[in-house]
Amino acid sequence: MTRLELRDVRKSFGALEVLAGVSLDVGAGEFVSILGPSGAGKSTLFQLLTGAIRGEGEMRFDGAPLDGARFAFMPQRDALMPWRRVIDNATLGLEVQGMKRRAARERVAPLFAEFGLAGFERAWPAELSGGMRQRAALLRTVVQQRDMLLLDEPFGALDALTRAAMQRWLEGMWRSHRWTALLITHDVREAVLLSDRIYVLSARPARVMREVAVPLPRPRTESAALAREAAAIEAGILDTLLGQPTPINDHPMENRND
C-alpha cells in the first residue's frame, strides 16, 4: 500500500533550480532511500515534506494531499538540546504535541534499554558518545508515533567505524519495528544495507536517475554471499552516480578512478 506519493515535485530558489521534477513512492512498512551527490537538493526535498518551504508538484499521503504532521524528522546532526537531559530530549516531540512532561517521561523511559541508553536518562547530551547521541536522536524521533520517519543523513557526522555500527544497529531496529521510513544519504553502502528500494538522484537540478530495488534478505550482514550481492548493487549505483557504464572486466574497482 502506497503511503507517500510525490509526483513531479519541483523547487527553485530564484534562478537556481534545485529539484527538477522528482517523483517517488514509499509503501507502508517500506524503507526507502534517496541517494544523491552532495548538494543535489536532498535536504530541500525534506524541507518540502516537513512544510518548512513550499514548492510545486503533487505530494500526497494515503491518497490525500500532504497536510504536514505526518513525519517524524531526524536532522543531519543529532540536534540534541545541550540544556536538556537525555530523557527530556527524547520527550521533546511529545511535549510539543501537548503531553505533560511527566507522562512523556513515563512513555519514553522504558525504551532506553532498547536504544542502548539505559542508565543515561539523566545524563546531559555532552556526556554521550557520538553513537549514543544518534541513538538518542532516533529515540526522540520514533516516540513521536508519526506515520513515517524522515532520516536526513543521520550518521553523516559520525566517524566511519561508529557509522558502520550504527547502520547495523538501525537495520536491526528496523527489522523489529518495520517503520515506514525515508532516508536521505550520499553513502551508497548505507543505502544498500538499509533500504528496500533506492531512488538515485542526479546532481542539481535533481531528478530521479534510477530506481533500484534491493531484494536481498535481512539481516544483510550475515553471509559472504549476501555481501557480494550487495557489493554488486553498490557498484551499479556508483556507476550511475559517476556516469560510467558498468565495467565488463572482473575487477571493476580498477576502473573507479578513471
Partner: peptide, 19 residues
Amino acid sequence: GAMGQVSQAGVPSRPPLAC
C-alpha cells in the same frame, strides 16, 4: 535477535556519569 545483541553492546557496564 540481532537487535537484542546490539542493545546489549550499548548498555553501559559502569554507572552513568549522572549517578
